[in-house]
Simulated scan of single mutants.
Amino acid sequence: MKRGAAIVALALTLALAGCGSREALRPAEGKALPPKPAMAATQPTPTDLLTPGPQERPDRSEELLRQSEEQRDDRFDLPPQH
């Protein structure tokens, strides 16, 4: 029973591994790319459309706090009034 399940799992894994496509992306037959953006100089390619821009994938700020610093006195940090 366990051996049969392992063979089925291996077969499914191999079947899924063969599903990947290595061809360049292009529109389906009879379909066209989306219209050119109004301010774009050229028609974007499928690769351009799939590449995330800086707003979709912003850079991470990995700056670490090197040493603690004393907070400055805040003149607006007043105690609550009764």
Rank of each mutant, 00 (worst) to 15 (best):
M1K: 08
M1G: 10
K2V: 05
A5G: 05
A6G: 04
I7P: 02
V8N: 09
V8D: 01
V8Y: 07
V8K: 09
A9H: 05
A9P: 01
L10R: 07
L12G: 00
L12I: 10
L12Q: 06
T13P: 08
L14N: 05
L14S: 04
L14P: 03
A15N: 07
A17S: 13
G18S: 15
G18D: 09
C19K: 14
G20P: 09
S21A: 08
R22H: 11
R22N: 14
E23C: 11
A24V: 03
A24W: 03
L25H: 06
L25S: 07
P27G: 02
P27Q: 06
P27S: 04
P27H: 07
A28N: 10
A28D: 08
E29P: 01
E29M: 00
G30E: 05
K31W: 09
K31G: 04
A32F: 14
L33A: 04
L33P: 05
P34G: 12
P35E: 01
K36R: 09
K36L: 08
P37H: 12
A38V: 06
A38L: 11
A38Y: 03
A38S: 10
A38H: 02
M39G: 08
A40Y: 06
T42W: 07
T42E: 08
Q43V: 03
T45N: 11
T45I: 03
P46Q: 10
T47W: 04
T47S: 05
D48A: 03
L49E: 00
L49A: 00
L49V: 01
L49N: 01
L50N: 08
T51R: 10
P52G: 00
P54T: 07
P54I: 05
P54Q: 02
Q55V: 13
Q55L: 15
E56N: 02
E56F: 02
E56V: 00
R57A: 09
P58E: 12
P58S: 10
D59G: 02
S61Q: 12
S61Y: 13
S61T: 02
E62Y: 00
E63Y: 10
L64G: 06
L65F: 11
L65K: 14
R66C: 11
R66P: 11
R66L: 14
S68Y: 05
E69M: 11
E69W: 10
E69Q: 14
Q71C: 04
Q71L: 14
R72K: 13
R72T: 10
R72V: 02
D73Q: 14
D73M: 13
D73V: 15
D73R: 15
D74Y: 10
R75V: 06
F76I: 06
F76D: 13
F76R: 11
D77L: 12
D77I: 00
D77T: 04
L78P: 01
P79N: 01
P79D: 03
P80A: 01
Q81S: 00
H82R: 02
H82E: 09
